[in-house]
Design a protein around this nucleic acid. Structure first.
Lengths: 224, 224
DNA sequence: CAGATTATGTCAGTAGCTGACATTCGGCAA
DNA sequence: TTGCCGAATGTCAGCTACTGACATAATCTG
């Protein structure tokens, strides 16, 4: 299980992981890619698991050994991206304020993913196309939101660790993680709504625009 | 469809809605209540739709005419509460800042629901018990999160209207709604985590504590 | 080259959910 | 009251997501 690559940066030249592992990774990637194509062309609901499985020439049962459910295969690429964000967050220097660190991490994550632009199944364009499908497909959106809140827990942990405090006693990490998470989703939504959606850089711009509104939104009255 | 009462305040003495309508409301309530009891005693996953339906002595097909899916019957009570929150928000005076209005509305909503405490199927204790089930049942949590984000759209609209600005041009309503929504969820989670969960007043207290951390969380460093 | 692991396939079964059609029940006017 | 109309319900057949159990085939290990 857990065959996901820790983070999709190139040059992951681990020692030869044996034929078995390689094959597993291969079928997994193939499943993701096939599912992706099918979802894109016929929509999520109108694509059956059988279709995906037989497109890769494995049994339906095998599909469910790789993914707990149909949702998961759709969220796989985004999940990788989120893992990479956490990775970036851990690397932020301690001098930054928590909010600065979060901001820098998300920007770096999108930029790096943008450059990694391998045409493989986990390319950044895949993630972006998927994001659009996710946001417009209710059950997928639901599953995605749940995933995101789980990631938030990780963020809370990392923040608390960073600042050396106990997240069960101090609410600040919890609150900041929640706020940041919700802002990211706003940004995603806003990105999805664009007619001609921009690439990773466009996403970075949108995210920063949202973050910049944090102060003004919380400030007193808005009326001119 | 949409048989949900607009908001669960008492004294909803509309003109006699006819036998047919009354019966519908009755079966709907019965379904919600039966589902609630079953979920509570055996868990969500181990309860089948057939069980719920036959507990109320209707066919499975009828169940699905009242609720689009099994999730919906579990979220019904919370959904009513959320509607009531929106209702309260609309009533806030224009002098309040957006954030103040949100805070006042959510506090009032929980307090009112706490007092309405009829022992009917939509009592506040039901909502609170359900909330616990929701937070601890992944598929329910997913569905709930999706619902919440839909409510957020409404909040954006109300805020924008209140302040007289265009939410497609000004990001502040979007950002504030997102932030506020995520804070509420944090509070719910925190409430769920309590050993001996308090009633509505306890929830109000937790929500306020979270809101109070908003400033500190966004401020610079946290280290002492 | 065995023999132990591990991935995969097959099969049968459960449960969520839907469309189509028949039936019954409440609303309403002659 | 009667009788008709439309709405709510029941029945049935069927699809799809998902799971457990067991058999088979592929890799790995010594």
């Amino acid at each position: 299980m857990a065959a996901r690559t820790p983070h999709p940066t190139p040059a992951d030249a681990d020692r030869a992981p044996g034929l078995r592992e390689r094959k597993k990774q291969q079928t997994r990637d193939a499943l993701v890619q096939a599912a992706h194509m099918l979802f894109l062309s016929q929509g999520f609901a109108r694509t059956t698991v059988d279709e995906i499985a037989s497109a890769v020439d494995v049994s339906q049962r095998t599909f469910f050994r790789y993914f707990a459910n149909k949702d998961e295969v759709a969220l796989a690429v985004m999940a990788d991206a989120e893992d990479y964000f956490i990775h970036c967050l851990r690397l932020r220097p301690a001098e930054e304020t928590p909010l600065q660190a979060l901001r820098a991490a998300i920007v770096k994550a999108w930029r790096d993913l943008g450059h990694a632009e391998t045409t493989g199944p986990r390319s950044i364009s895949s993630a972006l196309e998927l994001l659009r499908i996710i946001e417009t497909t209710p059950p997928l959106l639901a599953a995605h939101l749940r995933r995101v809140t789980e990631q938030e827990r990780l963020v809370v942990q990392v923040l608390a660790e960073r600042e050396g405090l106990d997240p069960t006693r101090d609410l600040r990490p919890v609150v900041l993680a929640a706020v940041f998470g919700s802002l990211l989703r706003s940004a995603h939504l806003s990105w999805t709504a664009e007619q001609e959606p921009a690439g990773p850089e466009g996403m970075v711009a949108i995210i920063e625009r949202h973050l910049d509104q944090l102060g003004p939104a919380l400030a007193g009255h808005w009326r001119p």
